[in-house]
Amino acid sequence: MLTYAGKRLLQLIPVFFGSTFLIYFMVFALPGDPIRALFGERQPPEALLTQIREQFHLNDPFIIQYFHYIWGLLHGDLGTTYTGRPVSEVIMNAFPATLQLATLALLFEAVAGISIGLVAGLRKGKFFDASALVVSLLLISIPTFVTGYVLQYIFAVKLGWASPTVGANASWGDYVLPAIVLATASFAYIVRLTRSSVVETQAMDHVRTATAKGLPRRRVISVHVLRNSLIPVVTFLGVDLGSLMVGAIVTEGIFNINGIGGTVYRAVQLGDGPTIVSIVAVMVIIFIFANLLVDLLYAVLDPRIRYAN
């Protein structure tokens, strides 16, 4: 188990360098002069431009720039944005909101999605199941900005149960509504995934054994159906954590949250290389760790995987 986790951590190294290199290359290939863009309409003196370019090694070839960046990174320096703020500060500023939002969203989609999926799977073909399937399909097809604005209008503006925007120093409660909006599509997907997994598991021979050996139905479901059904769901949750963190741009926009998604978006518009690459690097690390966690959880849920390694 430990060697397994160790191996997975070693895999982190090539993935990390590969992804940062790729992102750096793409930022490098972005059209336009980011430094000139900083000054907007004004005409800065050439000397100043040259000095800033020197500072950011922008005149060096791409590969040298990348090494400068990695060298800094290895010394704990994420670099500075083209506007002069340390990138670490920008990340620290935006990260808490994103983390709170993603955690709540993940919690919501896991708890609600698995419960509803389980009940639907147990009542296959009945009214509850049919409605769950129709509603989930609907939720998957509606884009986030529609659910976002609709829920914001109903629950925040009309009913006043939540605040329509989430400012700085927001409490966990303020994030509930945005988290639900963010999680909607994944939630619907988990309902369907759990449902089909439960239906499949129920038809398995070992579940029949469990019933035949005289276990009460409640125990057959909780001990023998649910645990086996969760394996594919856990995989999805792990992958989804990453997309919840970076993919929250629309939700962040609707609820005016200062998060990672919006920060990356603005950085891309400005062609701010150091910011983009650093944030993406942090995301890659989070993504890899989330997947490592899933793999370990996987091994806990399914002993066949544990002993295969």
């Binding site: 398995m204 469990a210 035949a212 050996k213 005289g214 001990v223 023998h224 086996n228 399914d302 002993p303």
Partner: peptide, 21 residues
């Protein structure tokens, strides 16, 4: 009645035990 008064032995031993317990 199942288990206590009527026992059952299934066909395929490879799939009839829960693999995760």
């Amino acid at each position: 009645i199942r288990g206590s008064q009527i026992g059952y032995v299934p066909q395929d031993p490879m799939s009839s035990l829960n693999p995760v317990w």
